[in-house]
Simulated assay, not measured.
Amino acid sequence: MADHQAILEEEFEVLESIFPDEFEKVSDNEVRIRIEPEEEVSGHPCELCCWTELTPVSLVLVVTYPPTYPDVIPELSLEEIDEELGELREGEEEEVVGQLNQVAEESLGMAMTFTIATAARETLSALINSRKVREQEEDEARARAYEEEEKKKTRGTPLTPALYAKWKDSFRAEMATKKAKQAEDAMRALPAREREDWRKKNARASGRQLFETAKVSATSDEALYEDGEAVDVSQYTREERDRARWEEEAKEEQAGHVALDDSDDE
């Protein structure tokens, strides 16, 4: 029958010689070994013109030996030393301990503490490198998001058929409102009689009124030729012809009033 305690004491002596400053024997079945990464950890530049510093991580590997060690694996755990030497993040202790347990399973029946401690250093280095890669990816993602936001400021909103239709309706409504205001301002600047004529002209006419207006316009145009005057109607706009007709009607009305006053005097 193997003397498990004697095997363990012999292993302790070897560990003390290998780790003179890192090894600490707590009891006959428990030791503590300080673990540091194999390589020095440095930061990395991010794309936003800053330098991301990575805190080095130094831990204590706590090994508790069962009575039948090394026929069974020891109980392993990690302890943080202080904040300045780094802290484990959520889920990292379980990840590291899980890998160390796999190493211990492969070494059953042999003194395995040195192997576990060496694997702990390698795993810790890989953990720090994983952090560095992950943080660099996060920095790059933030940089891309920042650049995309800056591009949006200069690129504007992409034009789609729906946006164009919305803009067109809004533009037409704006122009109609502007045109109506300009017409209203122009109407207010007219004399009272011309303002009333303007209102009549812009009032909504019925079909009968449009028909009669067309007949009057045709008769008026024919009268110009019957009087022997060759007039180029195309030189006048409809508005100018209407104004001329209104002035002619006003003169006739005034002449009628004069004639009526003369007959009253008689």
Rank of each mutant, 00 (worst) to 15 (best):
P67F: 09
A205R: 14
I116E: 13
L8G: 02
Y164R: 11
S170G: 12
F171D: 02
G207E: 15
V26P: 01
Q102D: 11
P37N: 09
A111E: 14
L76P: 06
E135F: 12
I128W: 02
L85Q: 11
L100C: 02
E10W: 03
E106Y: 01
V231G: 05
F12M: 10
E36S: 15
V231I: 15
V231C: 05
R243I: 07
D221C: 05
S27D: 09
R131T: 06
T113M: 09
R245T: 06
V57Q: 06
A165W: 00
L159W: 12
V233Y: 02
R195Y: 00
W51N: 07
Q254R: 07
M112R: 00
V26L: 07
V60E: 05
R32W: 08
L100T: 06
E239K: 13
E222G: 04
S220F: 06
P45L: 06
L88E: 04
M187Y: 13
K152P: 01
T52G: 01
N101R: 05
P158Y: 04
V231P: 04
F211C: 09
E9S: 09
L127P: 06
I128F: 05
R193L: 12
E222C: 03
W246M: 05
S130M: 13
V31A: 06
T115E: 11
A6G: 08
V103P: 02
Q99T: 04
I18Q: 08
A173F: 08
E106H: 02
L59D: 00
E90M: 10
K152R: 15
E53G: 03
T237P: 07
E93P: 00
E184R: 15
E84R: 11
E75D: 11
W246I: 06
I33N: 05
A104M: 00
V133L: 10
K178V: 07
E30I: 01
D71E: 11
M187V: 15
Q136L: 10
E253A: 12
Q102K: 12
G228I: 04
L100Q: 10
E194K: 14
R32V: 10
Y146I: 01
D82E: 14
C49P: 00
K132M: 11
T123D: 00
C46D: 15
L224H: 00
Y65L: 09
E94C: 01
S217R: 14
R199S: 05
A162K: 11
H44F: 15
A244E: 02
K181V: 09
E212T: 14
A255Q: 03
V62F: 01
T118Q: 06
T115D: 06
E249N: 12
A119N: 07
V133T: 07
A205M: 08
